[in-house]
Design a protein around this nucleic acid. Sequence first.
DNA 1: TTGTAAAATTCGTAATTTCTAATTCGCAAT
DNA 2: ATTGCGAATTAGAAATTACGAATTTTACAA
Lengths: 219, 219
Amino acid sequence: MHSQTEENYLKAIYKIAEKSGTKVSTNAIAERLQTKPASVTDMLKKLADKQLVDYEKYQGVVLTEKGKYIAVQIIRKHRLWEYFLVNILGFTWDSVHEIAEELEHINSTLLIDKLDAFLEYPQYDPHGDPIPNHKGEFSSRGAFTLATANLHQELLVTGVIDHSTEFLQYLNTIGLGLGTNIVINQFINFDKSLSVVINGKNGIFISHQVAKNLLVIEK
Amino acid sequence: MHSQTEENYLKAIYKIAEKSGTKVSTNAIAERLQTKPASVTDMLKKLADKQLVDYEKYQGVVLTEKGKYIAVQIIRKHRLWEYFLVNILGFTWDSVHEIAEELEHINSTLLIDKLDAFLEYPQYDPHGDPIPNHKGEFSSRGAFTLATANLHQELLVTGVIDHSTEFLQYLNTIGLGLGTNIVINQFINFDKSLSVVINGKNGIFISHQVAKNLLVIEK
DNA sequence: TTGTAAAATTCGTAATTTCTAATTCGCAAT
DNA sequence: ATTGCGAATTAGAAATTACGAATTTTACAA
């Protein structure tokens, strides 16, 4: 078994590598986990001893297959629990992250498989992130950010990149959530902001910063 | 917040005191938690500092009101999760204890209240133990053990005292579970064993040891 | 090629929790 | 009142995870 701390490191390394596509630096891990580089170095040595990461001093780390498998299982658990919290217990999408961070460390493959079955094998969590299946395979919808979408195309919101409570609550205030229909009416060159139609309601402005954090597909 | 270890100590002290009704000894805690008396002494000092127990060297401990409240909340969480695992996810009653031991340490009052509501405020867990409500109040059915029941009385099984997998699986093999009807046909003086009718099936023998661990009420 | 700033590591230390071994305490029997 | 034994405690040490300060390494600009 692995400690909760080890699991959090593996997940952090996975997430950073997912975004950057390269070896993961000590500082990047420290920042993500709100800890200090010295602590990260200590843990990387430990994970390397357990063959969960390939680690060379000063060169960054990469997850081994074993490490990647564990990371994906934790992500699976996190996202399934989020789905449960929102769709079964009635939590809002902006309030489930912290609880799922705790639940993801519960250790029982049987529990997760039964939860998955009870939820009828959902493919996406309440933020639109794909839920890996029991083999660790992810679905993909080929979504792109609103910032790269075309004018006048009918779009469907399928996910968010930023998961912070503040961002999600802002989306709530403008009536935007997963499944919302959206059309870009106007592109403002000056600040790259957008004027959009949300579920038929016209003239809503969305900043470039927000658009970059919204995932959509063509309808 | 309190560590998982602290919570386990509080729960252990509560359970031992519940049975004995007296101050709880260091050795009793050590045995229940599969640890050494020296470790227990260390932790008792810590819990005393936090005002969760009243502790005098060599005299044993008692939970304070604060400590008792926390212990009851952990028991509430444990039993609600057991109910969820059995009645929603389809686990068997003999396989949920270990998972619930992990889930009981998830820290969110909102989560537990929402889970309670989703489960429709169950009063008893899959082993017949009462689930404290959000105020910490327990229900009681006034059950007694099969070992103290009368001949020929129609009885209903409402709980078990021993929660071990072995005991529960044995009950499965003789077709006995919560809600089972049972009548004592014969009392064997030699070894205090019983001949009983279970759900209409005659001539099943039950040892005194088993009878002492079954809770029943009159029908 | 060299100098320097940023990144990463080492080292010593701290807090938690646990353990073993040695010691002390409380109480029952004499 | 003393003795002796089991229960409980203290002391010292290990494992885990984290941190600050000092040091080393890397990468890149001049």
